[in-house]
Design a protein around this nucleic acid. Sequence first.
DNA 1: TTAACTGTATTAAGAAAATTAACACAGTAT
DNA 2: ATACTGTGTTAATTTTCTTAATACAGTTAA
Lengths: 131, 131
Amino acid sequence: MISLNYRDSRPIYEQIKDGLRKLIVTGAIGTDEKLPSVRSLATQLSINPNTIQRAYNELEGEGYIYSVPGKGSFATGDPGADESRRRELWEKTRELMAELRYLGVSQEELMALLEEPSGGTPAGDRKEETR
Amino acid sequence: MISLNYRDSRPIYEQIKDGLRKLIVTGAIGTDEKLPSVRSLATQLSINPNTIQRAYNELEGEGYIYSVPGKGSFATGDPGADESRRRELWEKTRELMAELRYLGVSQEELMALLEEPSGGTPAGDRKEETR
DNA sequence: TTAACTGTATTAAGAAAATTAACACAGTAT
DNA sequence: ATACTGTGTTAATTTTCTTAATACAGTTAA
């Protein structure tokens, strides 16, 4: 369900946050669907429950999941309430696209990002220039 | 020129990398223009030169700057040679946009990201739903 | 009701990563 | 020469992340 990359410099709890968030926004985990319990996921990934707990706690802070003591943690249906997160992502996306343009990706290519929600690559690799 | 946020969980050298990269891709630092020296930037930000060195070293690895011992570090004109970085950004952008959609940003709004390279906000804030 | 789950909290220790410190060497420019 | 520049090294320090070992209370099913 989620895989950890120990060569990655980013902390484990961040990788878990990203992994779960991705599962949620892609619909792999539906609204109000139950997430693996803190302890079970910890066992499954062979890490400490506290690390999972931290990830869950922060995801709840971001509005992506909600937790009910005794029952479990579940995916939030509409996290759109928190304006801040949306602004943050919006800004980050703008910056990434600016950088892509700087790297030679054309306006037309960028439009592909809007159309096909899944696959795709920066496509037309420009011919090599020797520096 | 660059500001550090000590409340940010991300390491300083990462913040510096992002800051400089942004200055470069936005053109604030032009092609072959000299960046602040390792020592001067360290003094300016009140941090250790080694931390700056690490940021510069990694930025060079990513192709955004090049360094000449004795002279200084300069912005690369065409970093487009490294296909990997472009793929990475492309993928990351796709994911961000998927998440924005999940947060309720419409297809039309996303298009605004393509047209106006600078300002803008997620615009139409949908009316509040009480959860 | 007992047993096995759930989330949450706390305190301490350990491990890993980031940052600082103090140098040194060689190339460049004035 | 003097003062810059990037680069390299080693060690200590600080910060962050991760683990460990519990505990408590609510939930669920046998």
